[in-house]
Design a protein around this nucleic acid. Structure first.
Ligand SMILES: [Zn+2]
Ligand SMILES: [Zn+2]
Ligand SMILES: [Zn+2]
Ligand SMILES: [Zn+2]
Lengths: 173, 173
DNA sequence: CGGAATTCGTAAGCAAGCTTATTATATCCC
DNA sequence: GGGATATAATAAGCTTGCTTACGAATTCCG
């Protein structure tokens, strides 16, 4: 793994984007930046960013909602012969392994991620019940107290799932 | 709802059991206590603790692991004609509505709970990757900081899922 | 008792998530 | 070039999670 510590040093996330992009934001640019980010990550890690992997990521980027595997298939089917499940699962596995996609456990769904977070640092997902958008917030401080509480009972935490359902700012007004 | 505040006042959980019961604990007693607890809860709330509901809870209590709906069916099938999915789902719904069972979102599975926690107070689940046991810890303090962090981005949290995977004390040695 | 409400059983079906197996393409590297 | 490796396509199928529909049984209650 390369040392991209420079980017991370500033904080848990390098991109100072709003947690929930406004409904009228420039999503084209939003997507483009995410793709560029993915290209950089793959280049840095000497991983192949193949067409399908690219297209699956593109599909996930089509919204700020997490998509189920079959939703991804449906999305891809719009611009290519309908891919088989195995095809997108492979791509999803790749994207997750490289930190470009998160799995939202409570929804069995997948979410594109353009953040540059440390693999060990915990994130929390805010899931809007209304529009379905999902925002990420750094949860390092929370993680500490959680980890402390867990360790108190002799438990050694590895991976945390913190998913919070509610209503996002844009859907509230 | 009855006011059973007396029991709760002492803390988030009334039962001072270890988070993860030792492998050699008296599970018979453990189960019996949980059943008694369930009976009391149902009596207090004037709910009917029917045979199936009892048996489904019993099945969940057979281990300290969360079981998927079909695992529950398999478990029940050992001692009665194999019940249909709808049957156990109905029972599970009842048990969850009465706080006797939790749903573990990240596993699509159900966990018996003999704790007496306030419905609004948040709990975190510690899931052991090795033995599959799940422990509960009160997460009220954590919840507060989480909620604060979420609100900072305009998000209004309703329901939280905090599920932490790792290794339990008994599996570590 | 007898009607209403709750609970349960039976039957069927569907969608989502994911896998296995096998063959075909690329791609890498010597 | 050519063999090894990684990636992808094809085809099929399985499991799990959950639902709908409807009729039978039980319980509640006046
Ligand atoms: Zn966007
Ligand atoms: Zn929203
Ligand atoms: Zn036990
Ligand atoms: Zn364990």
């Amino acid at each position: 793994m390369g040392t991209h510590a420079k980017v991370l040093k500033a904080g848990q996330m390098s991109l100072a984007k709003p947690t929930f992009p406004a409904p009228d934001h420039d999503h084209g640019r939003c997507t483009a930046e995410a793709m560029t980010h993915a290209e950089q990550v793959c280049a840095r890690r000497a991983q192949k960013f193949t067409p399908i992997r690219r297209q699956v990521l593109q599909a996930l980027l089509s919204s700020h909602r997490p998509l189920g595997a079959y939703e991804v298939i449906d999305e891809l089917a719009k611009s290519m012969p309908r891919p088989a499940p195995i095809t997108v699962y492979r791509a999803l596995d790749f994207l997750m392994a490289n930190g470009l996609v998160h799995r939202i456990e409570s929804r069995n769904a997948f979410l594109a991620c353009a953040h540059d977070h440390d693999e060990t640092s915990m994130v929390a997902f805010l899931i809007c019940d209304h529009c379905g958008s999902v925002g990420e917030i750094p949860a390092a401080p929370v993680a500490q107290s959680l980890t402390a509480a867990a360790r108190a009972s002799g438990f050694v935490p590895k991976l945390s799932v913190v998913e919070i359902a509610g209503t996002c700012a844009h859907c509230r007004k």
